[in-house]
Simulated assay, not measured.
Amino acid sequence: MTGPLVVPGDRLPDNAFQPVRPAYGSASLAEVLPSASAVLGVPGAADTLGLRERLDGVDRIAVLLVDGLGAYQLPVMHPYTPVLNELVTGSRTVTTGFPSTTPVSLVTVGTGAPPGAHGVLGFTTRRPDGRLLNHVHWNDDPDPAAWQPVPTRFELAEAAGVRATQVVRPEFEGSGLTVAAYRGAAFRSASEGAELADQMLEALAAGPSLVYGYHADLDKTGHLYGVDSRYWRMAAQGVDRLVDRLVHGLPPRSALLVIADHGQLNVPVESRYDMADDPALSDGVVTVAGEPRVRYLHAEPGATDDLIAAWRSVMGGDAWVMTRDEIIDGGWFGPVPAGHRSRVGDVVIVCQNRAVALASGWEPPPVGRLIAYHGSVTAAEMTVPLLIARA
């Protein structure tokens, strides 16, 4: 993308910018697969979300995760998504974990555990050797089973005799993130919406099972063109066609859950703070991780206090600027074992309002030219739907 950024309005209400805490243990993404597993009879799984009341008699469940389908996006999509609109009636919401970003949420869903426990704590995090790990572009270094040690809910389902299947794009087979989030589930590939629906339905038809599918187009389009742009509306229509195909193809005794990993919000040019514009924002920084809405700064010894003061001076009310201990002790990740603490920066910038903290020179230039972002603690980013359909 070249030329000036065109940022459309995303029609978010004022309350979309209120901070929301992750509802670990009661109503977060970490409770979705355990609750579904309980309905399917997996021993030890707790139905914290109360799904059994809606799903009595169901012995096969499909979970579709639509990347970027935040609860605050549903009203914006309403004119283009008649099938989703029907599912919204009587639905509920859950929260993401923190940060509200794709790899964190996918592993939270797959493990049924808060981020602090599974250790995938950002889009990018610093490794013990000082190198940066991008959780989306991750192969086998570090070993996903060691970096993310929590058993997945698919492994537990298979051990209990419930068939588990994942349906994702073919290029994701065997990736570090796929192994960390979905290990234990049989792999099926699907490149587009109709194929995704057909593969999920075929897996459901084979017998009692837990089937998971992932759809990325809405999030990608929001990043590139903005929520409620013309292209985003087209992607929303694609989501509706996918859900329509699933709902009307469900075999007997089956149900569909539709969830998301986060919402999105559009960021105007004037709300973009860049480390490259002020040397004080990077003095003493050795590694920049996280992403624009939640930035992790790893600092040289003795540089933390000056960095905090500089960032607070520049961003003011557009960010919470915290130490590692403050953000962890505040419970945002859930309990964090000692081995995972260093994955969080010495300084953590949690953007508020519509602000982002860019890192030109530290990360690829296209990151600073996106239109919609996510990752922080606002309701728009943290609140996602839980939609239910039965055969």
Rank of each mutant, 00 (worst) to 15 (best):
P301C: 08
D329T: 08
G44N: 05
D56E: 14
R126Y: 06
V104K: 03
A309Y: 01
A280L: 10
A45Y: 07
D143L: 06
A197C: 08
A280F: 07
A36G: 08
H215C: 09
G119K: 06
L196R: 10
E86P: 00
T178R: 03
L204A: 09
P151I: 11
G249A: 01
W332A: 11
V136L: 15
D14A: 15
L156R: 15
A38M: 04
A45Q: 11
G375A: 09
G112S: 06
G116V: 04
A27W: 00
V347C: 04
D141L: 08
P8S: 12
L257F: 00
A260H: 08
V350T: 01
V104I: 03
F187S: 05
H223E: 07
F187Q: 05
V107N: 02
P337M: 11
A280I: 09
W232S: 04
Q73H: 11
P335Y: 04
L29T: 08
A391T: 13
V58P: 01
G222H: 11
L29E: 09
Q73G: 00
P335D: 15
G174M: 12
L121Y: 05
V109M: 12
G184M: 01
L265S: 05
Q166N: 06
M275S: 07
A30S: 15
W311Y: 03
L358C: 03
S100T: 12
A145R: 15
P268T: 13
P19V: 12
S342M: 11
E195F: 03
L74H: 03
F98D: 04
V367H: 02
L250Y: 01
A62R: 03
E171K: 04
R241I: 00
V227P: 00
T304V: 15
R390A: 10
D283N: 12
M275Q: 11
R54Y: 01
N139R: 14
E291Q: 13
G302T: 06
G317E: 15
A27Q: 07
F98M: 05
K220M: 13
P208I: 02
L51D: 08
G368F: 04
V285C: 08
T96S: 13
G213W: 06
G222T: 10
P335Q: 12
L201K: 09
G334K: 10
H78T: 09
V285S: 01
L297K: 05
Q18G: 07
V167L: 10
L33S: 08
P385S: 08
E195G: 12
A389E: 09
V32T: 06
A197M: 07
S91P: 06
V109F: 14
Q148D: 04
H137L: 13
V211I: 11
V42Q: 06
L51I: 02
L307R: 05
S37D: 10
R343W: 08
A23E: 14
A299M: 15
R169M: 11
W138N: 09
T125C: 05
D305A: 14
L201P: 09
H340P: 02
F98K: 02
S209E: 11
L29D: 04
A319W: 03
H137F: 14
R312Y: 00
A203D: 10
V344K: 08
P268F: 13
A299Q: 04
D305V: 01
H137I: 11
W332T: 01
P128Q: 04
R324Q: 15
V88N: 03
V150L: 13
L218A: 10
G226K: 05
F172Q: 12
G68M: 13
P151A: 11
R324C: 12
T111H: 04
P8C: 12
R11N: 12
G116W: 07
V350S: 09
L121C: 03
